[in-house]
Design a protein around this nucleic acid. Structure first.
Lengths: 243, 243
DNA sequence: ATAATGTTATTTGTTATACATTTATATAGA
DNA sequence: TCTATATAAATGTATAACAAATAACATTAT
């Protein structure tokens, strides 16, 4: 067969990829605006439907954010993991995943990340960690939860590896969702000692110490998560399936 | 403000979520077909534009696959990680990630997974592993690469944790892409001993052994991956940025 | 009969046009 | 100065028509 198949895919996908490459290539910076739909129609020579579909694809990929009205349009987003989390969440629901499985992963990976943080944290990183700890209120509440989880996110940044950072962020998104929406504030874990200790270990570049401390810290969190899952199951008595 | 804001988002997102819930709730099984666009228009009482956008969202999420023509439509896909990989790939490119970072993660996580596999592999799992090993050709080539990586994917399934499975699959997709597209077949690693040994260790439930063997196995792979990245950089002399 | 070919109908892909909704900005009035 | 209103710019939605792909059927030729 000397002839190559020239079956072209959908126009919108083509447009999507071209704009993606432009973004990755640095043609558009975060905060900048893509041309308006009308302008893109003329640029690409396709109909508005196609352009709109391409832009929605970019939005789903978490690359742009669409605002309406004059001065509106598709604005380039800075790097964020929301789109990844969303897709993973669907995948996870389809796989009928459980908290046990999430925590099993966190229990192994977060110590590794804590170790890398102890190895690589910059002075700026340490400052962010310290600020997080100092900002923790004395009485437990919703803010406590978010602050606690943010500490873990910051730790992932300290590891200076975007893959680890992404994995951690996804797992924490799941955890946060469960805890905040399900558990009453009184029932949350209020541990004011572990994070400061982790901070100290990282500052002292104690890799082993950071790893083991994180591991035992997470072991304490597991029953809390299981409780949240239990509550979630109670309020969500699986109403579907045959509808 | 006692009244909840009833600023409703976009219609398409609403439709998307409703169909998603139907899928997660088991109303549609893998392989089944959603109603046609025309039928959905009548069901939801919105225009075809909206319905099409919703279906495209589902497609981007990896939940359905669209076929044209009579008997065509949106077919429910069985669980697969392609959508996750795609979104992560974009995220990764935006973060300007490197092979070094991918391998750093694989080097730590795959041993954990191998250990879990040794702990949990069922007789059926073991059979699949054995079949993979036996199917490996004696002469190195493209099939060798795919077979090798598939062994790792199978191992992830043996761990019986969908999160680990997903993480591994993403990392392997990246690795596969690099190696297959970049490296000439002659330059690939042709190791006929490690996978059989891993298989034996898992069958014998030797958790420690599986972990350490996997770790050293991956250490051997790293230089290969770095070489692939190097070649990739050569052929891709960053033509973009000002276009 | 069978294989190649043409026809038809169904479903998604694309275009065009008009109108609705949101919202930043300018304008007018108190 | 402040508030209300009008204006215009951009995305959101609806409708209608046609294009293209393709499965099933009908026709023709061998």
């Amino acid at each position: 067969m000397p002839y190559t198949s020239l079956k072209k895919g959908r126009l919108a996908d083509d447009v999507t990829n071209q704009i993606k490459e432009a973004i990755f290539g640095g043609k558009y910076q975060a905060g900048e605006k893509l041309p308006s739909e009308h302008e893109l129609v003329e640029l690409f020579g396709v109909s508005r439907v196609i352009i709109r579909e391409a832009i929605r694809n970019l939005e789903q990929a978490g690359l742009v954010e669409i605002r309406r009205g004059p001065k509106g349009g598709a604005f380039i987003k800075s790097r964020n993991h929301t789109a990844v989390t969303q897709v993973v969440r669907d995948h996870f629901r389809l796989a009928k995943g459980t908290v046990k499985e999430i925590m099993e992963v966190r229990l192994e990976i977060e110590p590794i990340v804590a170790g890398l943080a102890a190895e690589r944290a910059t002075p700026g990183d340490l400052q962010l960690l310290k600020r997080n700890i100092d900002a923790q209120p004395q009485t437990p509440g919703r803010q406590t939860i978010e602050g606690n989880l943010d500490f873990h996110r910051l730790l992932a940044r300290c590891a200076h590896n975007p893959i680890y950072e992404m994995i951690i962020n996804i797992l924490l998104d799941f955890s946060q969702e469960l805890i905040i929406n399900i558990l009453p504030p009184g029932q949350i874990l209020h541990d004011t000692t572990t994070h400061p200790e982790l901070y100290r270990l990282i500052k002292d570049r104690d890799i082993q110490g950071a790893q083991t401390t994180m591991h035992s810290h997470l072991k304490d969190v597991i029953p809390l998560m299981r409780a949240a899952e239990e509550k979630s199951r109670e309020s969500n008595r699986y109403p579907n399936s045959t509808s």
